[in-house]
Write a protein that binds this DNA or RNA. Sequence first.
DNA 1: CTAGGGTTAG
Length: 610
Amino acid sequence: MRLPTKLYRPITTFGLSTNLQLPHDTTKRRVAEQSCLTLLQSCNTTQKLTQIQTLILKLGLRNNPLVLTKFASTSSELDAIHYASSFLFSSEADTRVYDTFLFNTVIRAYAQTSNSKENAIYFYRAMLDYGVLPNKFTFPFVLKSCAGLAHLNLGQSVHGSAVKFGFDDDLHVQNTMIHMYCCCNEGVESARKVFDETPKLDSVTWSVMIGGYARLGCPAIAIALYREMQVMGVRPDEITMVSVLSACTDSGALELGKWIESYVRREKIQQPVELCNALIDMFAKCGEIDKAIKLFRQMSVRTIVSWTSVIVGLAMHGRGEEAVSLFEEMIKTGVAPDDVAFIGLLSACSHSGLVETGRHYFNSMVEKFGIEPKIEHYGCMVDLLSRAGLVKEALDFVQQMPIEPNQIIWRSIIAACHARGELKLGESITKQLIENEPMHESNYVLLSNIYAKLLHWEKKTKIRETMDMKGMKKIPGSTMIELNNEMYEFVAGDKSHHQYKEIYEMVDEMGREMKRAGYVPTTSQVLLDIDEEDKEDSLYRHSEKLAIAFALINTPPGTPIRFVKNLRVCEDCHSATKFISKIYNREIVVRDRNRFHHLKNGSCSCGDFW
DNA sequence: CTAGGGTTAG
């Protein structure tokens, strides 16, 4: 990690002597000191700080600990903090008055900034260099900075330091420690270790760990941990609820989400906007978009996040027109859209084929709202054109973009090539991608799908071999489904479930019924080049078919079935699910990687393009 | 002077 050396170096260029006489009169001094402090409190720009600095020097108050501390904690603007800290630690300052409190103040100031957290670490090290002892308040600030930097080694060293100074048994330090580890890649295990060694009497400890698992993409563990928390009798607060809700959102655990909504009301847990937003997001992403809209309408205070959550939800459900009119309503209400709101809006246009509307809003970003489009916005536009079948326009658009296109953008175009039969073009783009990033497995999957469609089985097999040779694996498809307040996860060919025999019998029965109704398996997407019957067999073992069979066995007739798939739903499963919705008279709500499919009576809300 | 909160294209 690179630390800013310039701050630590003595700065002697202030040009003012510190040898001015102090006012002898104590009252006068008090007044001067007081006015200095008052001034400092109101000052937040570099310019103002310079003026006050002059005043401090003239009054000879430079080494007054109170002034120093105030000086460090006053600034909210980054430049001002830098300036203040260089002033404090310049060679003219009297280091004898440096104390823990002063360092804590500087460290806190940096820990709270969004992009200057290295400096917090830097001053923590300076503190130790000066021989100033940290206290139990120091570590939460420092650990928070480590968390923001997501720097595991650094975090471990601070952890060691906290142990050395004997503050690792402080609850606040432990909680921040867990949080820090949760924010670092590869840090979960360390987080869990600290968590397991903690008495965990506190809802914060649980919230941190639950939120950590939710953020790391392990919603099932997060939910299990919440249940454990309930068993231990720790009362969750509104922040715990936000963390658990985000786990519900990710895994599609609608029942638990609903339960939390009623629990919050029953237990009279505070309902800040953030919690309402989390509820809206949960309902929208668990397929209950109308419920999300209803909640949104009932809110008395809304933030841009509330609006955006609903817009994104509508986008995922393919209800583009409503998303657009909600966006317009938002502007009329006086809420200025931000870049995220535009991503939601543009993706809504994309999923509903609103090409002209999308173009109009994309242009309005700069023209009307002064928001510079980012790669995500360009990505939405490429997707918009690609999905509408305008592959050539999409390519032109990429060529004219002022930003370097990324893999996501190319994959949008490849998907369109795949869907529109532009297989040669798709093949050449994909080959290019593989050349640039030979270790990215999804590119090989794309190419392999194109070869399957072209019926080039030998080429397809070759790709498979290349992947094996490079030690790459296709991400396994998995399906999460909630039943009787439990989450179940299925992967293709899964036999770990205790009901697996019944499930496979049900899968066979489903296959027979579907064939009778006219279903033809789409075997072209099977990765392996095996004979047709085996291909069918491996299709029937796709995780979503197992999940559907599981739900059919365990729920009364007519109950809607909802599940979440981690990848894009494959062509065959999509068509099979449509048949099942009709044959078994079930409403099936599927959330795949990109969007929702509401299947009912043999047809799907996505209009068969996703 | 101390801790925890996901709205983000495919």
